[in-house]
């Protein structure tokens, strides 16, 4: 193929670039962009923080519960946190609009608080098991499993010793 012919053909085809920001641009479904955290699904296992190469994910205990914080400016968008999250509480969305002003850099975070539950036996504070996780652990649920889920680890051990009767 002659180079000149090729150039003429490319000229006839018109521009190959997207018209963004005046038109649409290509955003595939699987794009790894802004991270969303769903506290309802989080079990507090902290595997996401363990696998995070950039140390972008932090957990801290607050009065309201276990607080998850992700710094988008430290994140590499590798997706390991989502991959290793058993209940998929972390999700990388296809939103790539992450440009922001310097003054907003500390606001580029994703935060969520996993609300604590009270133990049905002693009333102590605990992180409640998430249904999505128990669905993975047990083939089916029953009244005993449901009851054990309302107990803190200490009371659960006591209940276990008593053969589940409480």
């Amino acid at each position: 193929m002659n180079m000149l012919m090729l150039l003429l053909r490319n000229l006839a085809r018109g521009p190959s670039t997207d018209a963004f920001p005046f038109g649409d641009t290509f955003t595939p479904e699987r794009l790894r962009g802004r991270i969303r955290f769903d506290p309802e699904l989080c079990t507090g296992c902290r595997m996401c923080a363990h696998v995070c190469a950039g140390d972008a994910i932090h957990f801290d205990e607050t009065d309201e519960g276990l607080r998850f914080t992700l710094w988008h400016n430290t994140c590499t968008f590798c997706g390991l946190c989502e991959h290793y999250c058993q209940t998929k509480a972390i999700h990388l969305t296809d939103d790539w609009h992450l440009a922001h002003l310097q003054q907003d850099k500390y606001a580029m975070i994703e935060q969520g608080v996993v609300a604590p539950a009270a133990c049905a036996e002693c009333g102590g504070r605990m992180t409640a098991p998430v249904p999505a996780l128990t669905a993975m652990a047990y083939r089916a649920s029953n009244r005993r499993i449901e009851h054990l889920q309302t107990l803190c680890p200490d009371c659960r051990r006591k209940a276990g010793v008593k053969g589940g009767r409480s």
Binding site: S16, R30, L31, R32, F77, L80
Partner: peptide, 27 residues
């Protein structure tokens, strides 16, 4: 012209893996 052809591969990476350069394919 070559970069335009390469762009097909870039779009494939973005569509299948979610990023134009770092695929994040392995575990």
């Amino acid at each position: 012209h070559v970069m335009e052809t390469r762009e097909v591969a870039q779009d494939v990476k973005e569509t299948i893996f979610g990023n134009r350069m770092d695929l994040g394919a392995n575990r």
